[in-house]
Write a protein that binds this DNA or RNA. Structure first.
Length: 602
RNA sequence: CGGGGCGUGGCGCAGUCUGGCUAGCGCGUCUGAAUGGGGUUCAGAAGGUCGCAGGUUCGAAUCCUGUCGCCCCGACCA
């Protein structure tokens, strides 16, 4: 390709509004152009990179035995009502009403495709002999994000590779999942990403039923906890916490004392008012679990973790009888923070003054393990404008359950070894999940097994955010001059830079090399713009072409060309005579050695 | 949803508080010339309903009202 025949609108200045590196670089390198908040046009350069990422994914999915198909962007809303996901997605789900002659049709723009594929499978798969099978597609997904941001990292429309496995048994699902997990590792390796597979919330299957593939990056929206000693890694929702510090036994327990705390109803206000550290406070949160109010106690400086609370509730299922499904299934359907009215009813005090001591109504008390380490703590008194100090567990209140109920934080003990967990921000690029029968049961996808029994199909789902592979890469793989691509994703692998453009001999060399390299299957860009060499060098660095070949008078006179890798400081010379073959060899070697890209510390 | 910032040629900005000549500057673009290895130089040129709509005024980019759009931060944590 010749620069003057394509569209690569590079920019010297950073457009207003772009802040994070990937956004700035994609705009400046002329890869994308914004249409509206959360929607971008991929310009030729960005599009080529996207296509390369797609190709890697396809190759690895095919190699893993998955089969490609394509599902539509729209589907009937009714399908989503059957799985209760119209409510689950809420405003994120984009709904449209189509006018057809004499009627209206309610449709949604698919945010993912579990419903559609399961609907397909319901009709097409009915025997264990047809499984296992993994189907995948690479299509646009639509999500009305509450706040699109960070350039192309969070957009309303994005390209996703989504795969779905269908198995006749759990054992078989484990194998399908494993195949996808390994394929994902190969994909991200080939894409040159420094990624981290982390454990994630696993839903009904439990155990290691879900992993996210994360790129550690400062601007990532997700938080992961990682133990450098043993390699344990999990996202913040999932991360377990090792043994906690016990309460110091040498500190005398003080008597329980009520003190007025007018106007102080947040942890911050109370700790400021009483001049104490937030970790001396006991935060009392009132949740409603399937209609049953419960109290959750965590340390003032900690955050409650709803996933962990759910699991804890399950072990208390008999105490959470009543309206919900907990009693029958042991699982909590709905868990939410209580409304101010419920809080007043339960505690007898307005919001902000709840505490474990002297609550008006006797409700289950779930206590985080770290609260057990607080001696002479401070809590709400269940009385307006009042707290109690000198609160001690077991003496002043009795937990119904002592469990891990909070989010892990930086420096927490590792659950697997004696190390400490480190908190890192990360960008999620992939997610693999053992779904089980959630969708197949709801949509009636059953099969006849070898034992002549009708059983629900067991499902897994596997997603990759294709745009995020590109944007995520840039968050870490750049320098002051611009993008640094791995060969595998670079829109062009080599740029030929004739120093003087209206110059017959230089252009002849450039054209010949272009044809020769193109014939060898290499992506070549010739910067045939009639402008100064400096401009071309700056742009080549900005768009990050891995290999640059300078064709200038100086070299031509001595029969040499100058070649320079984007990540090397220095250039080297090659003979003009067999330059084509030399370049082909250089590029093929670099392609084969993608691992080196990561090793360079990009 | 709450808070903050911003909309002026393709891009980045000044001008707005304190209304007043023909709306400026840099980059880019076009023409010509010189130059030609890390964002050249000179000369000339094109390109703007100052986001949009109403209002105030002799007069509005500037003041008022409304509206649209973009960016950032925060969101049940008691």
């Amino acid at each position: 390709m010749y620069w003057t025949r394509t569209l690569i609108p590079t920019m010297k200045e950073t457009p207003e509004g772009a802040e994070i590196p990937s956004h700035v670089l994609m705009l400046r390198a002329g890869m994308v152009s914004q249409v509206m908040a959360g929607a971008y046009t991929y310009l030729p350069l960005g599009f080529r990179a996207l296509k390369k990422a797609e190709r890697i994914i396809r190759e690895e999915m095919d190699a893993a035995g998955a089969v490609e198909l394509a599902m539509p962007a729209m589907s009937p809303r009714g399908l989503w009502e059957q799985t209760n996901r119209v409510a689950a997605f809420g405003d994120v789900l984009i709904q449209l009403t189509l006018n057809r002659p004499g009627r209206k049709v309610n449709v949604v723009l698919n945010p993912t495709h579990e419903e559609i594929i399961t609907d397909l499978v319901t009709r097409q798969i009915n025997s264990y002999r047809q499984m296992p099978i993994t189907l995948y597609q690479m299509t646009s997904k639509f999500r009305n994000e509450e706040r699109p941001r960070f350039g192309v990292l969070r957009t309303s429309e994005f390209l996703m590779k989504d795969a779905y496995s269908f198995d006749a048994s759990i054992e078989s699902l484990h194998k399908s999942y494993d195949a996808m997990y390994k394929a994902y590792c190969r994909i991200f390796d080939r894409a040159g990403l420094d990624y981290l597979p982390v454990e994630a919330e696993s839903g009904p299957i439990g155990g290691d039923a879900s992993h996210e593939f994360m790129i550690p990056a400062e601007n990532g929206e997700d938080s992961v906890l990682h133990c450098p000693s043993c390699g344990y890694a999990a996202n913040q929702e999932k991360a377990e916490i090792g043994a906690r510090e016990a309460a110091p036994s040498d500190v005398a327990q003080k008597p329980l004392t009520k003190i007025p705390t007018p106007g102080a109803h947040t942890i911050e206000q109370v700790s400021a008012f009483l001049k104490c550290k937030p970790h001396k406070l006991i935060k009392t949160l009132i949740y409603v679990a399937d209609g049953q109010p419960i109290a959750v106690l965590v340390r003032g400086d900690h955050e409650a973790n709803e996933g962990k609370i759910r699991r804890a509730c399950s072990s208390l299922a008999d105490r959470l009888a009543t309206v919900g499904t907990a009693a029958s299934t042991g699982k909590i359907e709905k868990l939410e923070l209580a409304s101010p009215e419920v809080i007043e009813n339960v505690t007898g005090a307005p919001v902000g003054f709840a505490g474990p001591v002297g609550m008006k109504e006797k409700i289950p008390l779930l206590v985080d393990r770290d609260v057990a380490g607080i001696v002479n703590g401070i809590a709400g008194a269940n009385e307006a404008e009042t707290h109690v100090v000198g609160v001690n567990i077991h003496r002043d209140f009795t937990p119904d359950l002592l469990a891990d109920l909070r989010n892990a934080v930086d420096g927490d003990p590792c659950p697997r070894c004696s190390g400490k967990l480190g908190l890192r921000h990360a960008i999620e690029v992939g997610h693999v999940f053992k779904l089980g029968t959630k969708y197949t049961a709801a949509l009636g996808a059953k099969f006849l097994d070898a034992d002549e029994q009708l059983k629900p199909i067991i499902m897994g789902c596997y997603g990759i955010g294709v745009n995020r592979i590109i944007a995520g890469l840039f968050e870490t793989s750049h320098d002051a001059d611009g993008i640094v691509w791995p060969m595998s994703l670079a829109p062009y692998e080599v740029v030929l830079t004739p120093v003087k453009v209206p110059d017959e001999p230089s252009m002849k060399v450039a054209n010949d090399l272009h044809d020769q390299l193109t014939a060898a299957g290499i992506d070549v860009l010739v910067d045939d713009r009639d402008c100064r060499a400096g401009v071309k060098f700056k742009d080549a660095d900005l768009i990050g072409v891995p290999l640059r070949v300078v064709i200038g008078d100086r070299g031509l006179k001595e029969g040499k060309l100058e070649v320079k890798w984007r990540w090397d400081k220095n250039a080297e010379k090659i003979d003009l005579a067999n330059a084509g073959q030399t370049l082909i060899d250089l590029i093929r070697r670099e392609r084969a050695d993608n691992a080196r890209f990561r090793a360079r510390g990009q």
